[in-house]
Amino acid sequence: MSQAADLPLWAAIAVSAFLLLGSALALIGTIGLTRLQSFYERLHAPTLGTSWGTGGVVMASMIFFTVTEARPVFQEILIGIFVTVTTPVTLMLLAQAALHRDRAEANPEVPPWATAGTDLEKDAPGAVD
């Protein structure tokens, strides 16, 4: 907390507001992860933490270091871009893995492989039984 003392009041308020917003969103997202009923519903919960949850904390950090060191800080933007680009990839892969597993077990809640109008039906991943 060495540099916090010479932080102007407006910057302290802005940093705190973004910090609280970001961590509250991350917490609510994780609460959703524990409370929602099915896997596909739970898939939506972490995106709260990775969209504006990360955005809030990254903004807070950028404001803090830009004001205290009196120079622009870019590392946080990298973290923000990195999280924005990687989260869809992980969530999509996880969703596809879950779909594949549910179809292999012929779970009735999951829609079949979208094959309308094609002849792909014979090698659809759902046709296991």
Binding site: M1, L7, G22, V57
Partner: peptide, 14 residues
């Protein structure tokens, strides 16, 4: 003043 605000916000975030 700003140090106190930041301290509480950081603790809450942690």
């Amino acid at each position: 003043m700003s140090a106190i605000i930041l301290y509480y916000a950081l603790t809450a975030a942690h």
